[in-house]
Design a protein around this nucleic acid. Structure first.
Lengths: 247, 247
DNA sequence: GGCGACGGTTGACTTGGATCAACAGAGAGT
DNA sequence: ACTCTCTGTTGATCCAAGTCAACCGTCGCC
């Protein structure tokens, strides 16, 4: 398949970034694909794209033609209303998908911004659709991923609709911790890639409230915060705060 | 399948409820299906189910094996957390789908309750998947519907995260009005099928706050409320409230 | 047709988080 | 090393919505 004239570096890089070889494949891909199916998939996800910190991967209103799998880095998505209000709708890390919201209207309905230098796999959507007409497990996996996004959003609605400030922040930290864990990072120690204002926007709070809640958690010995560096000292305590609402 | 002893009414009802003949098909189905494709679809959506007011269509935790298209009636979906908190995550009316959240975990993640006597079309999910491997337009339509749900959820997150009580209620009324309109009902006059408490739960407000906001809108001549009967008198005024946030 | 329960309205009071404001650290660029 | 700017912290005050409570209207049921 590969041309023999290709120089070593290119071949190496291609191998390194092929789906079949990607260390995130258990996050992105269904289990149990055959050899030939894997080859087709490597072909589908042919191009990659680097996005520097602060740059947009896509903007609301732009034509939709691909979804993106994050290979490395960290993103936020946000929505801007006509009246100037905006809100962060999610934070995405390696192994997660971006752009699912664009399918419905054929243009993106939110902005995706890199919060650190990142790399994404470009997945042309019409080719994903045709491939998932061929490969049942891919089709089913994709449906699960979309559905998981819906369930996740319901969780956020729950958080925004029923939780108090400290409960929201505890839920947020535990969620991040859990996602870092399943990527092989420490569950207890990590750097936040986003500002207090972005956290607040996501959680429906003002940045001052986020800052105060962090300080409060620190006073109570639940976490150690220094700027963006977080250490979780008492997971059980955070869980208790999260689910310990009045009445 | 049907016993031949079935009386005429049964046969009639089957004919009346075929997708190809359904007056909601432009809400549920893609345009431009061929005759043969339509026949397959009618076959897919073979069974229907009546759900009386107050009954569950499904409950959180139950095995997922089908999604549902609402033929008539009105539903709410809600999520219950372990700690007793619950929240209404949406209200669904004729032509809309229920159960998409169940795909990801193979069991339902919320409860679906009829708010009036209703009828749904049962769409076995594995058969939907196999049919959409055959029919590209069906596949794409389904993806759009799932994506639309994600976009809708982002809208709710926006509402919960950034809007004040009266803005939320105005947005809610305008959304209902718009959905009734696209089903051929009056945009200006309708009955709410849900209680103040359910509206409040959906909007992240207490029922008293919802009630006060209704009264306020009435004082200002924007709507006429009497219990569940709503008349919208000033759409522009509601829109202004919705997007007229401080600063 | 009357009774009871539920849903809705309204008022008085409380409170959690927003707002306004001052300031302190950290980091990028010169 | 030295700004300048951006991000984060903390305090004082205010207000929108929550809470608690009383009451009323409606509707379904006996």
């Amino acid at each position: 398949m590969h041309s023999n004239s290709a120089v070593k570096e290119v071949t190496l890089s291609v191998i390194k970034t092929a789906c079949s070889n990607c260390n995130l494949r258990e996050l992105c891909l269904p289990l149990g694909l055959s050899e030939t199916e894997m080859v087709k998939l490597d072909d589908l996800v042919a191009t990659r794209k680097r996005v520097k910190r602060g740059e947009h991967l896509y903007r609301a209103g732009q034509d939709f033609d691909a979804i993106y799998a994050i290979r490395s880095g960290f993103f936020k998505t946000d929505v801007l209303l006509e009246d100037g209000r905006d809100q962060v709708t999610g934070f995405q890390m390696a192994g997660e998908l971006l752009g699912l919201d664009g399918i419905s209207q054929e243009h993106h309905s939110c902005n995706a911004v890199a919060l650190e230098d990142s790399e994404v796999c470009v997945i042309p959507f019409s080719r994903l659709e045709s491939l998932s007409r061929e490969i049942q497990t891919l089709q089913h996996h994709f449906h699960k991923v979309m559905s998981r996004e819906i369930v996740r959003d319901h969780g956020v609605m729950m958080l925004l609709g029923t939780m108090r400030a400290e409960e929201r922040l505890a839920a947020f930290l535990l969620n991040l911790s859990q996602r870092f864990t399943s990527r092989g990072y420490s569950h207890a120690e990590f750097y936040l890639r986003m500002t207090r204002e972005e956290i607040g926007s996501y959680l429906g709070l003002k940045l001052e409230t986020v800052s105060r809640a962090f300080s409060r958690f620190q006073e109570e010995g639940l976490i150690a915060v220094q700027q963006k560096h977080i250490r979780i000292l008492n997971v059980a305590g955070l869980k208790q705060i999260m689910s310990h609402h009045a009445q």
